[in-house]
Design a protein around this nucleic acid. Sequence first.
DNA 1: GCCAACGTTGGC
DNA 2: GCCAACGTTGGC
Length: 152
Amino acid sequence: MNYWLLKSEPDVFSITDLKKRPGQTEPWDGIRNYQARNFIRDDMRSGDLAFFYHSNCDVPGIAGILKVAGAARPDPTAFDQNHIHFDPKSKPDSPAWYLVEVKFVKQFKRIISLNELRQHKALSNMRLLQKGNRLSVMPVTASEWQYILKLE
DNA sequence: GCCAACGTTGGC
DNA sequence: GCCAACGTTGGC
């Protein structure tokens, strides 16, 4: 079992949006970064858990938990000329970009803010908190995961 | 809206 | 292969 952190801008897609989706599942599409792609394609397994992180908003932070609900598959939005995430580099016979289906697990009663996470020395090595970090898909260690769960 | 950090692109 | 220019991310 691996743990992850997935970022999304809540104005675009929030944990509340995921909760309201039919079946509470959604394809996590639009990832266009190779490091993030490699995590999704090569390391994510169905059943893995991830923090749902709200970025680029009033209070950035962890909003809840989701579950990886299937194996990685090519991101179809990359093939669609009319889609905002269209990328001519990606072809159906040699896809550049991948996605996984995600399923809602829980919404935290409050946002565990980025600012709060920074207060905890136990989390100082967390990838999210490193300077210049911009990855939208990143691993979380088991100890970081357990520690953050207790903060809710 | 600003801007630091970082990834990508493309000329050479 | 180098690197300047450019675009994007995302906190503030």
